[in-house]
Simulated scan of single mutants.
Amino acid sequence: MADHSDPSAKFELLQSDDFAQYLLRAPREIAFVLRQLAAHRCMITAYIDDSPRFMMSSVLSVSEDDHQLVLDVSRDETLNASVAVARQLLCVTQLEKVKIQFSISQFHFDRSGKHPALIAQAPQTLLRLQRREYYRLTAPVSHSLICRIQAPEDKQMIDARVVDISGGGVAVLVPPKGLDFSADKQYRNCRLDLPEFGPVTATLRVRNIFRITNPNGTEALRAGCQFEELPTAMANAIQRYILRVERDRKARDMG
């Protein structure tokens, strides 16, 4: 049976230039992903309604007609009682470093077998953050990487913290004020100061915006941006920076 563990962050796709890239709607495609979760025994954080309470679970099986799935339940009967009267479970997991999230709203407990289980109708949509086209790197915690973005209205430079960088673009935390981020919006003359490699100036185009809700309840907006018109020399500097940081990280991991 599933037991308590560290919860996963919830995420919500607010805007995207291509929703089809992230959202699966075909029942057969959704069922395929659910079966993959079952085959890999992926742990799922199942949030109860809109609360921070959660149950750790996993997909046990999917019906042959793709309409139903069976989930593991908690060892905590008090938690199971909360799930039994819930309107919705928001399920968050990861499969081979691909983030997956789906909601179920029609479910019931089945205690007829040797082990209790949760029987649910398959979700109508499934959100999947696929592997990126480019090699990605989570920004190192040893130093804060900042992207300076020029506000179109008053030309003021506003700092946005970089949370992800690759040769193709960056993901930044949307500043609380000063910039109106929206899908397909373009920002010119953005500046990244790469430690030991100097400044990189490029045009950024917003591709998607996600709301991230951390397990402690704090929220942040994350904007995925693509580099445009990036000179070869600057693209090479970014790749060298990524390789150096990854090399340093592996050296620390090896002690």
Rank of each mutant, 00 (worst) to 15 (best):
C91I: 02
A235F: 05
I238C: 03
T203S: 06
V206Y: 00
N208Q: 12
L13K: 03
S112E: 12
R205G: 02
I30T: 00
Y241Q: 06
L194F: 03
M1C: 10
M56S: 14
A139Y: 05
C225D: 04
K250R: 14
V33M: 09
L79P: 04
V162Q: 05
P7T: 01
P7Y: 02
V200D: 02
D6G: 14
F181M: 07
L126G: 03
P123W: 03
R222M: 14
V170N: 00
A38G: 04
H115P: 10
A39D: 13
G217H: 04
I165R: 02
V73S: 01
P152C: 08
D180Y: 09
Q106E: 15
T203W: 00
H4T: 13
T213W: 04
S103E: 13
D159E: 15
D180H: 12
K155M: 14
V170H: 00
Q36D: 08
I149A: 00
L60T: 10
C147V: 06
D154T: 05
A20C: 11
L23D: 11
I158S: 02
R131V: 10
F109K: 04
E12R: 14
A251Y: 11
D18E: 15
R161P: 07
N236G: 09
E96L: 13
T203E: 07
D65H: 05
R131D: 10
S8V: 10
A223W: 00
S144T: 15
L126S: 04
M157V: 14
R222G: 07
R128C: 06
